[in-house]
Design a protein around this nucleic acid. Structure first.
Length: 893
DNA sequence: ACCATGACTTGGCCGGATTTTG
DNA sequence: CAAAATCCGGCCAAGTCATGGT
């Protein structure tokens, strides 16, 4: 106890007054355990701490440097804020249907999920033929017809008070931690500083209202998106227009306007001044401003106050007593994404853009064509190398891959290039060169590797962070994807195509209006084209010196937006599928992501209230005369019971996997009397749809009538989480931490099986199994030997000689027996290990842990069972689930 | 109603880091 | 201490679902 107290104290110190230690212990049954637990907690926290607090020298210089409001195309915001459909208005009409008469379709087989990627999968569902078709009314075996989790689950604690675990707790951890370390004002990006001031009382001398008086023109100048605001009509309604500006000029959906005039490119200083003024108010969307009084929850940064609901204090002391308002149906949580209104995701957003892969370094190794070396330009060589590197992979046996590659490579080679046929190419010189390079790298000393790593880190550091509403948050994927050959999964029609290099001009940046436009780290293409000849370059170099607009001209992003209704920081067009985007988002640990993660689970929990009704309803509709209704019923059943994915339509140029709504007749094979075999991945496409009256939007539209916000995927989340909760509560028997962890893993495994999270069998799997078997056999041999020794010992004879003829130590019977028991235990353990290994060889646990299991279940269970959370969540999961850490130990899903 | 688009979540592999084993 | 096993984060493909235009 003393020990624990000590640790706690220490931790508290380490992290500052009201930071909440990640300690779950409520009592200290074992001082040692506690200590290590605490230790672990602490260290992970401290790290976190450091990261967040790390001074960020670049930030400053960067900001300072962009003296010129760089002009990309400053595009006025595009879309009006989505109006979220209120989850808040549950219609219970349907859900009240009698639940008890669920059809009895027996399901023995393991449920699993729909789509598989190139993995052969056969699903057998004992689905009484009636269930799918005829429908029979009565059910005799209630257990059997309960879908998935229902079968596992006992009654839900009616009392489920935790339910409420309301919002305020939500982002507690994250928020509390972060703002505080923004301490040194210096490292704060301009806008965040300003923001803080705003809230506190502003030294910039601009009140909220000042904005209204600001002449329109001034504003126009600053953001460069003059066009809209100049319209007379806007002048009248100036306030609103301005406020929504960023978010809601509906008419401007995708304004691919040509560069808007940039008013004062050369009046740097004046711009600066104005910018300042504008800062105060302009970047605060109107919705937010109006909200201010009421939405205590939001408060952009800085008012780090004590009384935050769910703050650590109350928590430490009153885990138990925290009873939650069962705010029925969570109307709030989904309605007001805790921040402001109308789809707004942030108020200020500052970041440094993205980092590009290094340019291609030609190696000069010549490949052979018809046996002779060929000269290639660096661009041609680059692509050849991408291919050469893959020589020893199975792609070489895929005609589709080769063909697509050749088509794209040829474009770069040019029409009349020596190289005409891939078959006559010999890439081995390049391949071998590459192997050597790899080898070299491997041979590098640890120090060298370390140095290299640090170098990289140094370069990337500034891209790793963004500041959202004054809070420093990690960026997820700030690295632009390097060029390469596309590898789809399975037999993808586009495999082998060249994924071209992404240039700055391909990239659209989304950033706060008042944030400095990130410096573009490499030349953008337009600039280069623009300055094709020497004279122009000369002229421009003079200009550059004179007005210092180097970055404006030479380095340029494709587009700059200020759309606070979305969370992405940047995107570019997917070079493989030009209809798709590649986004840069914040990392999973960010508040924004945590928020929506929590909402996801809350929605799934809401389904709990409706599920019986829904099941009753679809069971009833199995027999519906209306084909659509019937199909919806069966589809819902499959989604619920087998955790199938929804199954959106796909184009022909995508992989040919199916989900529920895209099941083809060939996917399904009835096996009398009442089994339905579902095979995913039928042969070719083109078969008839099993559900010809159905697609995901119809299905989801229907589901939405049953429960607000319900969609197909919610069933997956629901079934996964409820299963975990259930198994944990039923199967945790006490005992050592290690045993409890096993229980958890077992439950985790069940969930993974339900969701059909697959993985490929490791190459060494069979070898590992054999080795295990050998070891077991060996141990069994030992036991036998010990047994004979034992019988001999009992008779007073000495043990037999060893295999190699050496005598063994003479042991007394007791010792021998103990040894036998020991060895047997070892054998048993190995057998178990073997079993789980075999079990899990094709099952991936990670996916469900990351995406489907409500972390609060895990955290609460850990608290109850006194299992250190680190035994279950690794560092990144801990960060991702920060929002769940302060859950009440009594929480049930 | 239907379709295209946009934004965001989910999924599995790979290679390097870390831990375990011999 | 090296080799093997395992873990983990990064990567990027492939899903889901909402929305808005027609």
């Amino acid at each position: 106890m003393a020990l624990e107290a000590f640790d706690k104290q220490k931790m508290v110190d380490d992290m500052d007054e009201d930071d909440e230690p990640l300690v779950f212990k409520r009592s200290s049954s074992s001082a040692k355990k506690n200590q290590s637990n605490a230790e672990a907690n602490k260290s992970s926290f401290q790290k976190h701490d450091q990261q967040l607090g790390r001074p960020k020298p670049e930030a400053r210089s960067l900001n300072g440097q962009s003296t010129i409001p760089q002009k990309g195309k400053m595009i006025p915001p595009s879309k009006s804020p989505p109006v979220k459909s209120p989850l808040a208005t549950p219609k219970s009409s349907n859900s009240s249907a009698m639940a008890s008469s669920i059809k009895s379709s027996e399901v023995n087989s393991k449920p699993s999920t729909s789509v598989s990627h190139a993995k052969q999968q056969i699903k057998e569902e004992k689905l009484s033929t009636e269930a799918a078709g005829e429908h029979s009314e009565d059910s005799d075996d209630p257990e059997d017809n309960k879908p998935l989790s229902a079968r596992l689950s006992t009654s839900f604690p009616k009392t489920n008070s935790n339910h409420g675990n309301k919002r305020p707790n939500a982002s507690n951890l994250g928020q509390k931690l972060k703002p505080k370390r923004e301490d040194s004002d210096d490292e704060k990006p301009l806008s965040s500083k300003i923001q803080v001031k705003n809230n506190v009382g502003s030294s910039t001398s601009k009140s909220y209202y000042s904005d209204e008086k600001k002449p329109l023109l001034a504003k126009t100048n600053q953001n460069g998106s003059a066009s809209m605001e100049m319209k007379p009509s806007n002048i009248i309604k100036k306030r609103p227009a301005d406020g929504f500006n960023s978010a809601s000029q509906p008419s401007l959906k995708k304004p691919k306007l040509p560069d808007t005039p940039t008013p004062n490119k050369n009046k740097v200083s004046s711009v600066k001044v104005e910018k300042k003024e504008e800062d105060d108010e302009d970047h605060i969307p109107i919705s937010q401003r109006m909200k201010k009084p009421t939405s205590s929850d939001k408060k952009p940064s800085s008012v780090k106050n004590l009384t935050r609901p769910g703050s650590s204090i109350s928590k430490k002391t009153t885990m138990k007593s925290k009873k939650f308002v069962k705010n029925s149906k969570y109307s709030k949580s989904s309605k007001l994404p805790p921040s402001s209104g109308e789809g707004q995701k942030w108020t200020t957003l500052v970041h440094n853009g993205v980092i590009f892969p290094p340019p291609y370094k030609p190696h000069g190794v010549k490949m052979l064509y018809k046996g002779k070396p060929v000269d290639l330009t660096p661009e041609q060589e680059e692509v050849a190398t991408m291919y050469a590197v893959m020589l020893e992979t199975e792609y070489m046996s895929k005609p589709q891959f080769k063909e697509n590659f050749m088509t794209d490579w040829r474009k770069i080679l040019g029409k009349n290039h020596t190289i005409q046929s891939l078959d006559l190419c010999d890439f081995t010189p390049i391949y071998e060169w590459h192997q050597k390079e790899k080898e070299k790298k491997k041979q590098m000393s640890t120090d060298e590797k370390k140095a290299l790593k640090e170098e990289k880190l140094k370069q990337e550091e500034k891209y790793m962070w963004a500041v959202v509403d004054g809070v420093r948050e990690k960026v997820g994927n700030f690295r632009v994807e390097p060029p390469g050959l596309f590898r789809g999964r399975g037999e993808h029609p586009k495999m082998g195509k060249l994924k071209k290099r992404i240039r700055p001009s391909d990239i659209t940046i989304n950033i706060g209006k008042d944030a400095p436009i990130p410096e573009c780290p490499i030349p953008g293409e337009r600039a280069i084209l623009f300055l094709e000849n020497i004279q122009e370059q000369l002229v421009f170099s003079i200009l550059v010196v004179k007005i210092n607009i180097l970055d404006v001209i030479f380095f340029r992003w494709g587009e700059i937006r200020h759309d606070n209704t979305v969370t992405w920081l940047a995107y570019w067009i997917d070079p493989i599928n030009s209809r798709e985007f590649k986004y840069v988002f914040l990392a999973a640990s960010s508040t924004l992501k945590g928020q929506s993660d929590k909402e996801k689970y809350e929605k799934a929990r809401l389904l709990k209230e409706y599920i019986l009704g829904i099941r009753a309803a679809y069971t009833k509709d199995f027999g519906s005369k209306e084909p659509t209704k019937k199909q919806i019923a069966v589809a819902t059943y499959l989604i619920d019971k087998l955790a199938l994915r929804a199954g959106n339509e796909k184009d022909d140029d995508e992989a040919d996997t199916v989900g529920c709504c895209t099941l083809k007749v060939e996917n399904v094979e009835p096996v009398p009397p009442n089994i339905l075999k579902i095979l995913f991945l039928p042969g070719k496409k083109g078969g008839d749809d099993l559900f010809d009256k159905l697609d995901t939007s119809k299905l989801n539209a229907h589901l939405k009538e049953l429960m607000p916000g319900l969609t197909a995927k919610v069933f997956r989340t629901y079934n996964a989480s409820i299963t975990l909760d259930d198994m944990l509560s039923k199967e945790t028997k006490g005992g050592e931490v290690a045993e409890k962890v096993v229980v958890y893993q077992h439950a985790n495994k069940q969930v993974a099986i339900i969701c059909n999270h697959q993985r490929s069998v490791s190459k060494s799997h069979s070898a590992q199994m054999t080795r295990l078997n050998e070891k077991i056999d060996e141990l069994k041999g030992v036991v036998e030997e010990l047994k004979t020794d034992l019988t001999r010992a009992k008779k007073g004879k000495p043990p037999l000689k060893n295999a190699d003829g050496k005598p063994k130590r003479n042991m007394n019977p007791d010792a021998l027996e103990r040894k036998i028991a020991q060895t047997n235990a070892k054998i048993e353990k190995m057998e178990r290990d073997k079993e789980t290994k075999e079990d899990l060889k094709t099952v991936a646990l990670g996916t469900s842990k990351i995406n489907y299991l409500d972390p609060r279940i895990t955290v609460a269970w850990c608290k109850r069972q006194e299992v250190p959370i680190e035994k279950i969540f690794n560092k990144s999961l801990l960060a991702k689930f920060a929002w769940a850490m302060d859950v009440d130990p009594g929480f049930r899903f």
